[in-house]
Design a protein around this nucleic acid. Sequence first.
DNA 1: AGAGTGACCTGACACGTTTCAGGGCGAGGA
DNA 2: TCCTCGCCCTGAAACGTGTCAGGTCACTCT
Lengths: 354, 354
Amino acid sequence: MPAAVSIREVATLAGVSVGTVSNVLNRPDVVATATRERVLAAISQLGFVRNESARQLRSGTARAIGLVVLDVSNPFFTDVARGAEEAATEAGHAVILCNTDESIQKEARHLELLAEQRVHSVLITPADPTLAPVHRLRERGVSVVLLDHPAQLADACSVSVDDRTGGFLAVEHLLAMGHQDIVMVNGNVNRLYQARERHAGAVKAMTGAGHRADALGVVEVPAFTVAAGLAAGEQILARKPRPTALFCANDLLALGVLQSMVRAGVRVPEEVAIVGYDDIDFAAAAAVPLSSVRQPRQLIGRTAAELVIAEVREHEAHEHQHVVFTPELVVRASSDFRRSSKVRHRMTKSSQGR
Amino acid sequence: MPAAVSIREVATLAGVSVGTVSNVLNRPDVVATATRERVLAAISQLGFVRNESARQLRSGTARAIGLVVLDVSNPFFTDVARGAEEAATEAGHAVILCNTDESIQKEARHLELLAEQRVHSVLITPADPTLAPVHRLRERGVSVVLLDHPAQLADACSVSVDDRTGGFLAVEHLLAMGHQDIVMVNGNVNRLYQARERHAGAVKAMTGAGHRADALGVVEVPAFTVAAGLAAGEQILARKPRPTALFCANDLLALGVLQSMVRAGVRVPEEVAIVGYDDIDFAAAAAVPLSSVRQPRQLIGRTAAELVIAEVREHEAHEHQHVVFTPELVVRASSDFRRSSKVRHRMTKSSQGR
DNA sequence: AGAGTGACCTGACACGTTTCAGGGCGAGGA
DNA sequence: TCCTCGCCCTGAAACGTGTCAGGTCACTCT
C-alpha cells in the first residue's frame, strides 16, 4: 500500500510552502497564476487527495450530515433520502445514511457514531418517542431537523406532513364509499408519532360522520413491513363479521394485507376495500392498484437538508422553522370498484379464454 | 454551541495525563481499576465524545466502508445494503452509502469523496465499464470488492451472482412454456455488465433450443426503473405481431411493463408472459405475481463486507477471492397460467358478483 | 539493605491540514 | 534616495488523538 501523499510532499515538489498549497486548494485567487499552476501540476503528478480527517480536525466539524431513518427498505424513506442527498451534494456535503429499524438502541448507537464523526447536523425520524437522544445532540451543538415529526421543539427545525389530515382523508373516503365497519392496521400508537396522528385523523373522520370514536377497529402490528401486513391480513380474515374496509398506516402494510386477501380469495375492493399511506411507486403496480395518501417524499428530504444547511450557515441568527406539507388522497381500484371494473372485466374474459 | 470537550479536559478533571485517558478508551486492561473509574466518571460528567477525525488522522484510515450502488431506490440494492451494514456494524465499521444512478460522473464524484474520507475500503457496483475509477482506488491502497461484477481482477475480491445462468433459466422456462416469440427488455449491453451477461444467458437458451441467436428480440431501456418499464411496455404494445413472452432484466422494469399491459387490457400470462429478475419483495405482490430470477440479496452484501474486512485485517497475506452465487428461478403467475387460475377464477366470480 | 521486578502512569511527539502574523520585494510617489 | 503600499509567499502554531520510551513507586527476593 503506497503511503498516502500529503500536502507537504506536494509543496516540496512544487517548490513552495505548505501554506501556499493549502491556499491553492482553498483560496486559489490569493496565489499567483504561475505558482498555482505549478502546484496543481504537482498535485496531479503525485495523485494527491485531501485528507478530510485532518481538515475536520482543524475546522472542528465535518462536511457531512447524518440522515437517520426508521427503515431504508421502505421506498418512502429511500425517496426522502434521495431528496436530501441531492440538496446536500449541491451544497458540498456528504450524507451518511443510518437505519434504526424503529429500535431505540440502534438509534442511540447510530447517533453516538454520528457524534463521533462530528457531523455538523442530523436529519432524523425519531424512534425514541421521548426525543431524549435528539436533545443530547442539541446540547452538543449539532443542528437537528426532525423529519416527519413536527414536535414544536424550541431548538430544532422540523419538516413533516400533516398526518392527522392524511388519516382523516383516508377514512372520510372510505365512509363516503358507504363503509361502516372500518379497521385501521397500525403500529404502536404510543411509540410512533406517525401511528398516533394518522389514527387521530381517522377517528376524527369517524366521529365527524356521527360514529362513536371506538367504532374504528384497530389491528396493531409490530412493524411497518409487508410481512407484518400479511400477518395482520390473516388476523383480519379470522374475524367473524369481517370488516368491509381497511386503512393501513403505510403502503407496505397495505401491500401485505392485500396479498393475504388475494391469497384467500377475498375480493378487493368488493368484499374489502383497502387504503394505504405514502403512495410509494409500487402502490400503483399492486395486485389491485392501491389507493393511498400521497406525501411529497423527495421534497421532504430536500427541504430538510436545505433547512439544516441554512441553519449551519446562518449560525446564531437562525430561526427554527416548522414546515408542514399537506397530504393528498389518491384513489385507485383498491377502494373504488368503479375504477377496477374495466380491468376486472377483461380479466374475466381472460379466464374464460383459456 | 458549547465547545466540544477533549481528552485533555477529561484528563485534568480526573487528575491524570491524556495518555491515561487514551488508554482507558482503547486498552482499559492496562490501567488500574480505581483510575479507570475516575476517568470514566469524568468522561460521563463532561459528556466527552471521541473525535473520530483525530483518531483517523492518527491511525491513517477511517473505520468506515463505502458502499457505492447503482440505484438506492431499487429494493435489490437496499437489501444488499442491509446485509453489508449488518456485517459492518458487527465489526465496528460504519457504512457510507452512495448512489450513482448509473452515471460515470456521479460515480467518480462519490469515489473522490470517499477517498478524501480515507475510508478503509469500498464495495461497489461499477457504473464505469472500464473500471478505471476502481483501479485508481486500488493504486491509492483502498481495498475494493466488486459487487455483482465478477471481473477477474488480480487486485480485488468480487461477489456476484451468475447472471448468465440467470438469463438462461428465465428464457429456458419461457421456451418450455411453449413461447417462440420472446423479447428481452434490457439496459445498454455495452455499458452494464449485468445487462450483457443476462442477455448472453438468454441467447444461449434460445440457441440451445435450436433457435437462431437473433430470434430473441430486444427492447433497450435507458434505466432500470418502473418508469422505463412502462415506456418499454408501450413500445411493445405497438409491435405488430406482439411477442408472447417478455424477459425483463430486472423486476422494476418487469413491474412497469406489467402495469402497461394491465392498463392496455392485455392478459398476463395468457397473451403475454413476463419474467423479471431479482425477485424483490414487491414482485410477489404485483398485479399478477411476478416470476423472477432470485438472487441472495442480503447475503451478497454481507459476504462483500466480510471479505473486505478480512482483507484489511489480513493485510499482505490476503488472497483475493471471487465468490459467485447461483441464481434460482421462481415461477409465479406472470409466466404460468396454471398458477394464476385459482386466483383468476375467484376474480371472475367477483366481477360477476357486482 | 540493595537489587530486581512489575504495575502503573507521564509527557512529548506525530498525524495532515488551515490559519495567520509577518517578511521579502518590486513599483510608484515624494 | 527613501518611504509606503500591495502582492505573494513563508513558517509556525494549533486541532484531538494514539503511541511509546521512559519514569515512579511499592513490593519481593536474596
